[in-house]
Amino acid sequence: MTNRWAGVTVDCVDVERVAAFWSVLLDRPQGPSEPGWIYLGHRDDPLPRLVFQPVAEPKQGKVRLHLDVAVDDIEQGMAQAIALGGGFTGERHAYDEGVVVVMTDPEGHEFCMAQYY
């Protein structure tokens, strides 16, 4: 038996808004999707699919699993995320290997954005 990572599913109240944010930020086109859901990428892509699942309740509390997004320029990456409807939590860390900031998507799902040196 072979197990493989197929995707990451994000619960969203506004599936279209959250999927559009991630589609532009990661340059991942929408693939075949079920009604009411949006999938970025295809099942056979080399990268895992991002799946946006509709739910009635808004996010509560800090997510325990998050995406890490690598960027060439941290300031430009942050500006793009904010322009797309995301936010900056104010959390920023400088490490020997680079800088990491904690950002949010339009529904408040936290993710790390990192510029590696």
Rank of each mutant, 00 (worst) to 15 (best):
112 C>K: 09
105 D>C: 07
83 A>G: 09
110 E>H: 15
95 Y>I: 00
89 T>R: 08
87 G>R: 06
116 Y>H: 14
110 E>C: 12
87 G>A: 14
88 F>L: 15
99 V>H: 04
103 M>I: 06
104 T>I: 06
100 V>Y: 08
85 G>V: 03
98 G>Y: 07
97 E>W: 11
109 H>N: 15
98 G>E: 12
105 D>A: 07
114 A>F: 08
99 V>S: 13
108 G>A: 05
109 H>K: 01
89 T>D: 02
115 Q>K: 10
113 M>V: 02
96 D>K: 11
109 H>V: 06
105 D>Y: 06
95 Y>E: 07
108 G>C: 06
105 D>K: 07
90 G>C: 04
105 D>P: 05
96 D>V: 10
102 V>C: 13
109 H>M: 08
103 M>D: 03
93 H>R: 13
98 G>C: 09
98 G>V: 06
111 F>T: 00
89 T>W: 09
94 A>T: 13
104 T>M: 11
95 Y>V: 00
103 M>T: 06
111 F>V: 01
89 T>Y: 10
88 F>S: 15
88 F>T: 01
92 R>I: 11
111 F>R: 02
94 A>V: 11
92 R>D: 10
86 G>E: 04
86 G>Q: 04
113 M>Q: 10
102 V>N: 12
94 A>S: 12
85 G>I: 01
99 V>W: 09
104 T>R: 10
88 F>E: 07
87 G>M: 08
99 V>I: 15
97 E>N: 09
95 Y>N: 03
87 G>Q: 08
95 Y>F: 14
110 E>P: 00
100 V>E: 13
101 V>S: 11
96 D>C: 00
98 G>K: 12
96 D>L: 11
99 V>A: 14
116 Y>N: 01
105 D>H: 04
106 P>I: 04
116 Y>S: 04
97 E>K: 01
113 M>A: 07
112 C>Y: 12
108 G>F: 03
108 G>Q: 04
93 H>L: 11
108 G>H: 06
95 Y>A: 02
91 E>F: 12
89 T>S: 13
100 V>N: 10
84 L>F: 05
103 M>P: 02
102 V>M: 15
89 T>I: 03
110 E>F: 13
111 F>E: 07
115 Q>N: 01
109 H>Y: 14
89 T>Q: 05
95 Y>L: 12
87 G>F: 05
108 G>R: 07
86 G>V: 02
113 M>E: 01
98 G>I: 07
109 H>G: 01
84 L>I: 05
103 M>K: 07
87 G>H: 10
93 H>D: 01
102 V>W: 14
98 G>H: 08
112 C>F: 05
91 E>Y: 12
91 E>T: 13
108 G>K: 06
98 G>L: 11
104 T>Y: 08
104 T>K: 07
100 V>C: 13
115 Q>D: 04
111 F>L: 12
108 G>I: 02
87 G>I: 02
92 R>A: 13
